[in-house]
Every structure is written in structure tokens, then in C-alpha cells.
Simulated assay, not measured.
Amino acid sequence: MADDIRRIGAEPLPYFRSKNYCEHVQALTEDLRYLFGTTSTPLTITASGTAGMEMALVNLFNPGDEVVFVNGGTFGAKWGSMARDLGLHTHEMPLEHGRDLDLQRLLDAVGPNVKGVLLSAHETSTGQRFDVRSACQALASKDCLTIVDGVSSIGCDPFEMDAWQVDCATACSQKGLACMPGLVFVTFSERAQRKLRQTTHFRSYLDARVYLDNIPRGMLPFTPAMHATFQVAHMLQSIRKVGLAARIQQTAERATYFRDLMLAEPGFQLFAQTPSNALSAITLPPGVMATPLAGIIRDKYQAVLPLNPTKAETFIRISHMGEQHEAELAQLAQWIIEESNALIVLPD
């Protein structure tokens, strides 16, 4: 996080039902419209990104409804397991990790009884960015809602909810916005809002109707993570000053800079066919495994390379979100290259 964002986390807080805080929520909501690219009303929920996914499922579908989920990694698989836990009937569309979405396969998987398609804009476990724009536009004429997990993509990659005809999308405070964790933002299209008023699925804390009914007057129905809302508001105002496209371009340039350094060395390759700006998934040279390398980087340099939730040992992931500088990325690349070369065991 940037220094000015961290300082906001130490500021005194007003009463969350006060006039000033309600005005803050209204201004935050307007800036979130800009982030999502929508005229709909983004909802601010104090919870994790997983709760945003659950909010979409329990508000838009009834138990027994059929949904298709695209499984291109850990978070695609999560869509399927959550949907099953909540009583939906799921159809899996598996993808090879790190590969592009096959649009025709997806359209073929959407039968006449399918009520929704569950997508990830960016599969965080593989670094792969999917063409959700084409998918959502192709499905817009069907009686089938498109739900997009944009948690690690929105704010890093281009995303235009209305123009792409997305029915529901989620984002978080701690990813592309680089603020403290604690908030998930969920936006429903007009079509989705009509549907959620008719759905009979049990819901309470994540009942989108309660949020939609209260937010026009700046009221969040439950106690919010207030410091996080102030951080996000500040960040969104900063993004507005430079423009969202320029902010995304900055992230893209950091990603390209780091990838060029890594790919210039023998044995390193990109894992994702179409990488997100949010992170680089780098395939390691033969003989180098991710877990030992991450342990060395952590213990020797105090830098964290999170282990892959897919358990894959052939590649590592490096974030490009938040406050990063080229000198830091160059240093990290040097450490990874040097320690990888040291781990390669040459034959006698």
C-alpha cells in the first residue's frame, strides 16, 4: 500500500450513521460506478471476495437452478463448489490451466435450462486473463445471467460492465485498489436486479435487496469496515485524476517490465497464454521447483512468493498490483534468476 493509503488506516472515525459518513458512502458509490464502468449501483459489503461470490449466487438463483462454471484453476473450481454447496445444479466446463477460453465450447455448454454462467475475469492461480467480454456479449440475448469474479482483475485489466453486458461482477478493496482487506463490491445489472427481486433463495446478511434499498441515502445496512471505505474512496479519487485507463496502463507496464527481465534468461517462460496485468505466472527452468525456491526467497531476502493453490511446482506468481517500482521488480527478478540457477543440479 502507498504511504498515504496506510495513513488513512490510522485516522479517527465518525459515527457510521452520521450525515458525513452517509455522504461519504454516496460519493464512494459514484466512484465505484466509474471503476466498474456502469450506471448501476455498486454495493459495498464488509466481507471477503468469497462473500461477494456467494452474494451473487444466493440472490440470482434458486436451489436446483442449473449453472455452468468455467474451471480454469482454483478460483474457477471455487465457483463450482460454492454453487453446489448452495443447492445449485452445476455443469463444469474444464480448461487446461493457463489456456484461453473457448467461446464456442462455452456456448455449446449453455443448454436451454441453464440460468447462469460463472466466470473469472482473471484466474489468479494461473495468471490467465479470460475474454469475458466476448462471453458476456454472446450470452446477453439468452435467458442466462453472466456472473464475473473480477476480484483480481478489476482495476488492473480493462473492464466495462455495461458495454460488455455483464450481469453481475465483484471486486475487492485489497487487490487492484491496493487498500486494506475487508470490503467486497458487488454490482448487479438492471436485468439481474429484476431477477434478485424474484428469487426465493434463503439470504440474510448477503441479501442484496437490503443493500439496494438503503444505499441511495448513503446507508450501509450493517457496520462497515470504515477505514477501508475511506482508503478506497481516496484511491478512487486518485485514479480519477489520472484516468482509469492510465492507471491500468501503469500496471501493464510494470508487468511487461518484469516479464521482459525474466524471459531474457534461458529457461523462464510465461505460463498464461493471455496474461493479466495483475500478476506474472513464470514457468521455472527444468529441475527447479516452486516450493524450495519460494522458501529461499522468503528466508534469504524476506520477499514472499505465494505458493500456488493448484499445487503446481512448475511456475511461480508475482503480483504487479499496488505500489511497485521498477528497481524493486529488477531486484526481485535478479534474486529469482540467481537462486533458480543455484537450484539446478547439473548431471555428473
Rank of each mutant, 00 (worst) to 15 (best):
M1C: 09
M1R: 13
D3H: 13
R7V: 05
I8V: 11
Y15T: 13
T29C: 04
E30T: 14
D31C: 09
L32T: 07
R33N: 07
G37E: 03
T39C: 09
T41K: 10
I45V: 15
I45C: 11
L57G: 07
L60N: 08
N62C: 10
D65G: 06
V68C: 02
N71K: 15
F75E: 10
K78G: 04
G80M: 02
D85W: 03
L86W: 05
L88Y: 00
H89C: 12
L95I: 07
H97V: 07
Q104D: 15
Q104I: 07
S134F: 00
S141E: 11
C144F: 06
V151R: 14
V151L: 07
S152L: 06
S152A: 11
S152R: 12
I154L: 00
G155T: 08
G155R: 03
C156H: 08
C156D: 08
C156T: 06
D157F: 00
D162R: 08
W164F: 05
V166L: 04
V166Y: 02
A171F: 03
S173R: 04
Q174C: 10
Q174A: 09
F185P: 03
K195G: 00
R197E: 14
S204A: 12
Y205C: 05
R209M: 05
Y211F: 13
Y211H: 10
Y211W: 06
M219F: 15
P221L: 00
T223C: 12
P224G: 09
M226Q: 13
H227F: 06
A228V: 12
S238K: 14
R247A: 14
R247D: 10
Q249S: 14
A252G: 15
A252V: 09
T256H: 14
L263I: 04
G267R: 01
G267F: 01
F268W: 05
P275H: 07
S280A: 15
I282Q: 00
P286E: 12
V288M: 05
A290Q: 12
P292F: 02
P292H: 04
P292N: 10
R298E: 12
Q302H: 14
P306G: 01
T310M: 11
F315H: 08
I318E: 01
I318P: 00
H325F: 14
H325C: 13
A327I: 07
A327T: 13
E328Y: 12
A330Q: 14
Q331F: 11
L332D: 08
Q334L: 10
W335G: 08
I337L: 07
I337S: 04
S340F: 05
I344Q: 05
I344P: 03
L346P: 11
